[in-house]
Amino acid sequence: MFELIAPFFRHLYERTGLNFIVFYDPHEFGRFVAGISISLQLIFWSLLLSLVIGVVGAWTQRSQSAIWRGCVHAYIQAFRNTPPMIQLLFFYFALGAFTPSVDMGGYTQPIISSFVWAVISFGIFGGAFNVEIFRAGLDAVPESTLEAAESLCFSRWQTYTNVTLPLAFRISLPALTNNLVSLAKTTSLAYVIAVPEMTYVLNQVWSDNINVPEMMLLLFLYYVLVVTLLATALHALERRLVLPGYGQ
């Protein structure tokens, strides 16, 4: 792959001065690929954690205990009404300063890396939105449909797994798509705690090589691509799972 594109971009640089160094310099290419990999992993784990938190939170919101409901409620408000960047800094610097480190033979490394803190922070931030989405999805399953299941002898658990959950998930999906795409964009903030994802890597590349416009273009294209792919995949899932006859 690299051998294939390298001559073209080297030529492009020599002819026009457009310096897409990540496509012809092996070292920079390695950085670039590592950046993509970290960035995609960051997106994947953040979205996953936010979904898990969303599901658990939605369950708790429907629980009988007012204390639990209050806690989840407070969590949602706290994380929705404060800047995600300060949340990230708080997790990484303030809480990170008090997590133990391990001796890696000569140097110490905190148990929780900046990458993991970013995942935790974005997961919790995105989760605050997902709780509401899943809860609304559960609430939107009509009581009467559940009654029908009950009168057909479904037990509570059978109703939950065969009727409530499949319906709630489908109902939630469009709202979820929006939120997950937003969260994927937000992960670029990991730059501030030096997680070597795309924004951070290209920043280093353009500082080293003074080719800001070219790398900026690349960064733009990268996010457009990632956001488009994610949205396309989720929309495809939506279309596959749409309740026939109840489509948009």
Partner: peptide, 16 residues
């Protein structure tokens, strides 16, 4: 409920 079936005004079929 196995002995008694019920049909509702709003049908309440499982849409999925």
């Amino acid at each position: 409920r196995r002995k008694v079936g019920i049909v509702f005004q709003q049908f309440n079929l499982f849409p999925h």
